[in-house]
Amino acid sequence: MSEETPAEHMNDLTHLGVEIREARENRKLTQRHLARAAGYSESYVSKVESGTVLPSEKFVAACDTSFGTNGLFARLRERIVKRGHPTWFQPYARLEREASSILNYSANLVAGILQTGPYARAVIRAAFPREADEFVNERAEARLQRREVMKREKPPLLWVVLHEGALRTRVGEDHHMREQLGHLLKEAKSPHVVIQVLTFDAGAPPSAESFTLLSFAGRSGVVYSDTPMGGQVSDAEEAVTYSRTVFDRLRAAALSPAASLALIRQLMEEYPQ
């Protein structure tokens, strides 16, 4: 597996920020002008131009429109994002951004798209105990950027079934777990997000492994499944149909959304503030 180093990733981020600043200045625009055009704050523009944050897809699209750069900054951002994901995950990450619905079953950990920063870093650190902090932060930032799909004008339906074990597994410090569980409650307030919990009392789950089903308008869906060496994406009709049947059984066996949130709230209160 060939990947860029964390230092190269940071250099790319700084380079993108410099290019955006120079394009803005060449067109005699202030940070305030760009902020208004993109729908962001001046401080956000400043952070992008200084290379301290990865700009959103919406922001770089606004830059390309304002500067007339024909998708240049969108392409530069895409290259950076690819470096933040392992090679085997990149095809799925691209598909997830285009999906009309995302159906996820998480057997052991909170679904990546719903993870907080500290939780994601703790998960990645556990998987890569010998890597530098820059590597862990890079992977975590790429994971957090997956949330952007829910900020689309018409976001996908995100339906997540979490096994109770995923909620009870202590990841990071106590306050990190409280923050993570609180984040789930906050996200579930969206009309586009449904969260259910499959409790221990439900018995043996229909699936022992985590997987995600993506649906698309006008074309067939795909299923992403975890493996010990990474993950794989399949658009085989048999695999998609089988996975959809399993997911239906999972959410049928899980608590109702309201009861699920009550359990998550109860678990959150077990951690000190």
Rank of each mutant, 00 (worst) to 15 (best):
L34E: 04
L198W: 08
S100L: 13
L261C: 07
T169Q: 13
L263P: 08
T52L: 12
E209H: 10
L158E: 00
E57D: 08
L157Y: 02
G203M: 05
P91C: 02
I195N: 11
Y119A: 05
T199N: 04
H183C: 11
S2L: 10
S220M: 11
Y271C: 12
E238M: 10
R139Y: 04
I124G: 00
A126S: 14
E3C: 00
A188V: 09
H15G: 06
K47Q: 10
L144R: 12
G71E: 06
T116H: 11
V240D: 01
A35N: 09
G165N: 06
K154P: 06
F73H: 06
L250G: 09
I195R: 02
M1I: 04
A202V: 06
A252Q: 15
V193N: 07
I195C: 10
P257I: 14
E98S: 01
E3D: 08
T212D: 07
G203Y: 05
N104H: 04
S66N: 03
D201G: 07
F200E: 14
H183T: 05
S100Q: 14
P272K: 12
T227L: 08
R83G: 01
V60Y: 03
Q273I: 13
E78T: 10
T212S: 07
A93K: 01
A258Q: 15
A236N: 12
T65D: 10
N26Q: 15
Y271M: 09
V123Y: 09
L54P: 05
R21T: 08
Q266I: 10
V240Y: 03
